[in-house]
Design a protein around this nucleic acid. Structure first.
Lengths: 220, 220
DNA sequence: CGAGGGTTTGAAACCTCTCAAATGACGTGG
DNA sequence: CCACGTCATTTGAGAGGTTTCAAACCCTCG
């Protein structure tokens, strides 16, 4: 793949909740071009990743190509954290993306002696679990319109203040929501017609203005 | 609810992977009648539970009553393990059920000083996460027939050797698989007609003989 | 034996998917 | 700077799988 080593720019102070007290972690950065694979399902999990810029999708495939995206990872998010040795998803860059990575083994080594880090790993795993539990309800029981509304609210909650930039294409959204890209497009059109959202910029992936109250009515 | 204290019968040696070295846990047993609630979503999580006999369903509800069952807990399973203070599901007895319970606080207290237990809690949370991840793929991308086949294979894997007793009704299965009870019934009929399974006993909930190879062909 | 709940099966409705075409956005090269 | 090719998105029309509504059947239990 097209992974290029890049010099470390100004570093955010914390990865994995680690502070200066954990200076022993070697963390380096990598760039992935749009669409390239970061790791594959069932590959050995050598690293844990944090998104520095860009966005990542984690997905599973059925043998005939049907795809279910389990999560999008946005700036600041940690992903690839496996407590087994093997990745359970494939991870790909949605757009050009920079990630920071830490060796899983070094993390585990420290976690063995540092209860605070061990607890932090549990907290992260729990929040992944919580997201998956909520997503099961969406996939099993919500309508197309409800799913798209919930997706926009999730992106809004995670990224900003009523203005959401969507880095992923309609097909990605569809595979996240268990729909087809056409159904997603129709739902967005309907929400647009209802005034629940507006598009800013010529490209409709760029920015979406969200009316939280109106979307929340669909989030039962 | 109709929870009755029962005298402790012969105790399996281990709960939560704890051995004799953790004698400090007070564990008592409770009985729940079929259909009664063990705990509700958003209730404070005071206990962690292990199924001694019977079966339990964990579910979330939408405001209009749509239900998504996230998991069935069978004999030996641990459930109600929250790392937050609040239950994220409602748990109900599918049939008359006996559970053993441990105070969450006492568990956390020990986990703070016992790395082995802390690691075990992470392992359990991870396996819950793994199940949820697989279930997202099922709910988002599999057909009705594939879902029912996957369900039977899961029950077979968890309970026995080609013979599965289904304690839950069609509606429970449907709410687990994101379908309606009629669709589940039709899928079972089709699998029966294909020879992929047989019913033993007059009541069709009781025992199902599974042809693993044939079901596995549907498990893409 | 009758009542009640669970299951099966049928028929029609409906939501989403599939297939298709038109439109729009963007980069490249003339 | 515009023409063109490519890719993403939108929109339409029809098909299809699942749901809804309904009725019959079965099993259990009082």
């Amino acid at each position: 793949m097209f992974a290029h080593i890049s010099p470390s720019p100004a570093c955010p102070p914390s990865i994995l909740g680690l502070t200066a007290s954990h200076a022993s972690f070697s963390s380096s950065e990598f760039n992935y071009r749009k669409g390239t694979e970061i790791y594959g399902e069932k590959e050995p999990a050598e690293y844990v990743y944090q998104v520095m810029s860009g966005a990542v999708r984690s997905y599973k495939l059925l043998s005939d190509g049907r795809r279910q995206i389990g999560a999008f990872h946005l700036v600041g998010d940690i992903f690839g954290l496996e407590n087994n040795d093997i990745h359970r998803f494939t991870a790909e860059a949605v757009v050009d993306t920079t990630v920071r990575l830490i060796r899983r083994l070094s993390l585990e080594r420290v976690a063995h002696t540092d209860p605070a880090l061990a607890r932090h790993l549990l907290v992260m795993t729990t929040s992944n679990l919580q997201h998956a539990e909520d997503h099961m309800l969406l996939l099993g029981r919500k309508t197309a319109l409800e799913r798209v509304a919930a997706f926009l609210l999730e992106m809004d909650r995670r990224t900003g203040v009523g203005v959401v930039a969507l880095p992923m294409c309609r097909r990605d959204i569809a595979d996240y929501l268990g729909l087809t890209l056409e159904t997603v497009s129709r739902a967005l059109s309907k929400l647009h017609a209802c005034g629940a959202l507006d598009f800013l910029g010529s490209n409709q992936r760029e920015i979406v203005l969200v009316d939280r109250a109106q979307l929340a009515m669909l989030d039962t």
